[in-house]
């Protein structure tokens, strides 16, 4: 869980993890391999999934095709996903298999972008502000989905500025501010620490 305000550096952190932004320095290790010099597709194929903040659905492609783009061979240490299994998780998507991504609502797109990433059978996924711009009902649904994914054994790194949402799903939290980690601790500790919340997350 990465917490922090707009522009604090959460999205950039996530983009450098998946290789879309080249870090100036530092090391990124994933599944025991150094990945900071690899291309995004190589990192993704190691089992790291990325769900961008802007969703970036392929609007010309329908739901099934969007899932097809994300498909990768199954992995030993990760849950295996098929479109049918994903439609159990996201029943809405199952009802609109042939609908182009461009003609879906924001919430449906957010579901699809997560489902698409899961098609790569990742062992860990990066979720960049999944609650952004969504209605409260959908946010709750999103939280349930993320808890479901955790039960499947998936490691989830979440970036959020919505503390309520974060409290629903996260175990541990890092607070990012001006590109640096300012706080780390368990979600329960953070919830109890008014001073820290006031300093970094007050709105």
């Amino acid at each position: 869980m990465l917490l922090g305000r707009n522009g604090a550096g959460k999205s950039t952190t996530m983009k450098s993890l998946i290789g879309l932004v080249r870090p100036l320095s530092g090391e990124i290790a994933f599944a025991g391999r150094r990945v900071e010099r690899l291309q995004p597709y190589q990192i993704a194929r190691l089992g790291l999934g990325y769900v961008p903040e802007e969703r970036r659905i392929f609007t010309d492609l329908n739901v099934m095709e969007n899932l097809e783009v994300g498909r990768q061979p199954p992995r030993e240490n990760a849950p295996r996903w098929t479109p049918e299994r994903l439609f159990e998780l996201f029943p809405n998507l199952g009802r609109m298999r042939d609908r182009p991504g461009g003609r879906m609502s924001g919430g449906e797109q957010q579901m699809l972008t997560i489902a698409r990433t899961l098609m790569g059978n990742p062992s860990a996924i990066l979720l960049d502000e999944p609650s952004e711009g969504l209605a409260p009902v959908i946010v709750e649904q999103m939280a349930r989905t993320i808890l479901e994914l955790k039960r499947e054994g998936l490691c989830v790194l979440l970036s959020e500025q919505n503390l309520h949402f974060a409290q629903l799903v996260a175990d541990r939290a890092y607070i990012v501010e001006k590109g640096q980690i300012r706080y780390s601790g368990s979600m329960a500790e953070l919830a109890a620490d008014d001073a820290v919340r006031e300093q970094y997350l007050s709105v």
Binding site: L20, Q39, P40, R56
Partner: peptide, 19 residues
């Protein structure tokens, strides 16, 4: 399908593991 996806957003296609 991959070609059409890359036409729209090649960066995202890359992040999904498309070489």
């Amino acid at each position: 399908t991959l070609v059409r996806a890359a036409t729209e957003d090649r960066e995202m296609a890359g992040a999904l593991g498309v070489n």
